[in-house]
């Protein structure tokens, strides 16, 4: 089964920001991802959804080369991700680090500039200015000097986003940025996603909240070990596809999604 997008075919004039072909990952015997292939279109916000254990984070980590794959190929703008690292920004899950680390918000954002610095160069005034700008973009300029353990969960998430912004990438991976954040942070993230989109950047977001998928994303990728469906949200976020992905375990299906789904969000 080959679920490459029709959208990618329309865009043959540009190289896809991300093309994944036949990607498979196995931690133990059982594959966590099986033969996943898709291509994303430049300048889109893409939501990756699926039940727990569907391999959403794994897909992201394998695409970034953080974990080994047992097969398949990942191309970022037509080349292997190793050659394109500077084009990629990454927002890991907030719980993946120890927030009691002795550092402040600005310093964490500065880490986003490390990839642009030589091995022995320290971040200077130019890097600091970029970091401050990125912090203010996520509404955290006042917290630059704050020790990171003294930030709320949402603020920590925004610091991570600012760090990804500081990477000045073209293709962003965000692993559940909306998980457990307050309303202010959720709003800040949305604004940021829209701004990235306006700048022509491509953002792939692992997402959990099905209720907001139609509001936030241009395309949606439904994953459950195998790729279940991928394409423009309006056509792809359907009851049938959700049922296939979640195996009908979802009260959401009946309540919120009358088929056919609304083509746009009337607000």
């Amino acid at each position: 089964m080959n679920v490459t997008t029709t959208a990618a075919a329309q865009h043959t004039n540009t190289v896809a920001p991300l093309a994944i072909r036949g990607l498979s990952v196995a931690y133990q015997k059982k594959p966590v991802l099986r033969n996943v292939s898709f291509e994303v279109k430049e300048g889109e916000l893409i939501g990756v959804i699926g039940p727990n254990g569907a391999g959403k984070s794994t897909l992201m980590k394998a695409a970034l080369g953080l974990i080994p794959s047992i097969g398949g190929e990942v191309l970022v703008y037509g080349k292997s991700y190793k050659q394109q690292r500077k084009l990629i920004g990454y927002v890991p899950q907030r719980e993946s680090v120890d927030w009691d680390f002795p550092t402040n918000a600005l310093d964490v954002v500065l880490m986003g500039r490390y990839g642009h610095l030589g091995w022995f160069r320290r971040p200077g005034a130019k890097e600091k200015a970029i970091a401050v700008e990125c912090l203010s973009k996520v509404g955290m300029a006042d917290y630059a000097d704050r020790q990171i353990s003294q930030l709320s969960g949402g603020q920590q998430q925004r610091v991570f986003l600012a760090r990804a912004l500081a990477q000045d990438a073209k293709l962003y991976f965000m692993d559940e940025p909306f998980a457990g954040v307050d309303a202010a942070t959720e709003k800040a993230i949305i604004t940021l996603l829209q701004e990235l989109k306006l700048q022509g950047k491509t953002v792939i977001v692992v997402h959990h909240d099905l209720a907001t998928v139609q509001d936030y994303f241009d395309s949606v990728l439904l994953l459950n070990v195998e790729l279940q469906a991928y394409g423009p949200t309006a056509q792809t976020f359907t009851q049938e596809h959700l049922q296939r992905t979640y195996g009908g375990r979802l009260a959401f299906l009946d309540r919120n999604l009358q088929s056919p789904p609304p083509s746009g969000k009337g607000e």
Binding site: L66, R85, Y90, P92, M111
Partner: peptide, 22 residues
């Protein structure tokens, strides 16, 4: 002293460090 920023980032967030190619 020379590798301070590398040691800092692999102590704080090794996943991110790998992501930026360290």
């Amino acid at each position: 002293a020379l590798l301070f920023k590398q040691f800092k980032i692999i102590s704080f967030d090794p996943g991110f460090a790998r992501g930026i190619g360290y």
